[in-house]
Design a protein around this nucleic acid. Structure first.
Lengths: 247, 247
DNA sequence: TATGGACCTTGACTCAGATCAAGTAGGACC
DNA sequence: GGTCCTACTTGATCTGAGTCAAGGTCCATA
């Protein structure tokens, strides 16, 4: 599985981001600098972190909770174009405005760096710039993978695709591995799932019920999911059974 | 409008790529190096340039013709995830395999650089690396813009969106500007349009006929398009009338 | 001038998913 | 215990786009 967009300052204990691709190569001067421009921000579920078109004053990563990138048409139709899970990176060094809304889908904590000094540091530090290109390529792959889901998959396949992405991300974050049944809590409402999948919330609900009836997933309450057989779910998603590479 | 993913070697007369963001800042040593690792490749319409999963031995840009990035499911459903018009860049410096097929949608000429030495040059030349990040961000924006099209737009809006993208790209390449009626040849078959839009070719045909009947576009033959009123087309696409920023 | 084939159009019918509408489940707060 | 509210489910019906099928157009080649 490819690594995910992540960027971390020095102290991963108090900013619980797993991947240290950047800081592992930073010397202490750089880490000090990062520490100086670092701060935390919290958002409540439903709050908008950044409005489309706004100036962005920071870059950063998700510490806990979920944020989503959403685009909205004038008549209100919305499409999520990205899902930011803990450790994912937000921000576009070198760019001014945000091209879409960033919304806190659950309560959210972010670890931010002030943008200007971060960019300056980046300009002086080739391996940070390089890591950033890597992350952007990963995001691009994920977006294009999702285009196939949106354009060509059935509602049932879409749900299965989303569940398997969340399951895989959850496994890699909790280091629980992918063998045996997967258990996790759905971090999204039916409506948010619908926005991500280009469906209505009723269709999402119906297809989840159908997958449950067919034994592909188990549900306790409305959010607690067990996937007895990951291979089966991936077949339902229309993916190669050996697992997608992206996100 | 944002710049498009492009990368150019020194001699833009014999490699007709408009944007010189890279070479404008290269000194003559770098240009000489680029010249040494440069070569051209031609493909016939329908040929596959790179298979998904293959090692890529070059990076480069489209000189003439159209290439597309496509993803295919096991059962044959396909989705185009990118359209490469003249001057667009192909390649993922620092990455090995291709994540999707690159197909020559028309007869195609590409200007290529050998990948290994290009990467070495890039590692030594921060402004090329920087330009590459810029291009990747542009592609990411375009992909996400397209996710809204795939997930939430009607067939009619999808066609209008594609036509306005092609019209705008055509205008910027030929420097004809966006005022007055736009005239161009559709570079895609109905089937290719369907693959890009997540539709069937019959639906594409029907919607083009409908837009024609309603006077949004004029058609001479099957491919020669006139758009009398670009604003009207963009309304049909469901975009802000002031024009999208992306692609 | 025919013949074949790629590409496109149009019609008739079907169906997956949207829409509209009525519920249920469970938590917070009085 | 009741009531309110948000999140979810389920049913009935509608409809936009897919499917299947029959032609049409244009061009290259015989």
């Amino acid at each position: 599985m490819s690594s995910h967009p992540q960027l971390c300052h020095s102290d991963c204990d108090d900013c619980p981001i797993r991947h240290r691709a950047v800081c592992a190569h930073c010397d202490s001067r750089e880490l000090e600098e990062l520490e100086e421009i670092k701060y935390y921000r919290s958002f409540e579920a439903g709050q908008t972190v950044i409005w489309s078109g706004d100036q962005m004053s920071f870059v950063g990563s998700v510490v806990s909770g979920i944020a989503s990138l959403t685009q909205t048409m004038e008549d209100g139709r919305t499409q999520m174009v990205g899902l930011l899970l803990p450790s994912d990176f937000v921000g576009r060094p070198g760019r001014e405005g945000a091209p879409y809304d960033v919304v806190a889908t659950t309560d959210l904590v972010m670890c931010c760096f002030r943008k200007k000094p971060f960019e300056e540091l980046m300009a002086r530090t080739p391996h940070i710039a390089h890591r950033l290109l890597e992350m952007t390529l990963d995001e691009l792959d994920a977006a294009r993978e999702w285009m196939l889901v949106l354009g060509r998959k059935t509602a049932r396949e879409k749900i299965a695709s989303l569940l398997s992405i969340i399951a895989r991300r959850d496994a890699s974050l909790t280091k629980r591995g992918m063998s045996g049944p997967m258990v996790f809590d759905l971090p999204l409402t039916r409506e948010a799932m619908a926005d991500y999948l280009g469906l209505t919330l009723e269709t999402v609900s119906r297809q989840i019920s159908a997958l449950k009836k067919d034994g592909v997933i188990h549900l306790e309450g409305k959010r607690h999911v067990t996937i007895p057989d990951m291979g089966r779910l991936m077949e339902e998603a229309g993916d190669d059974t050996d697992g997608g590479f992206l996100v």
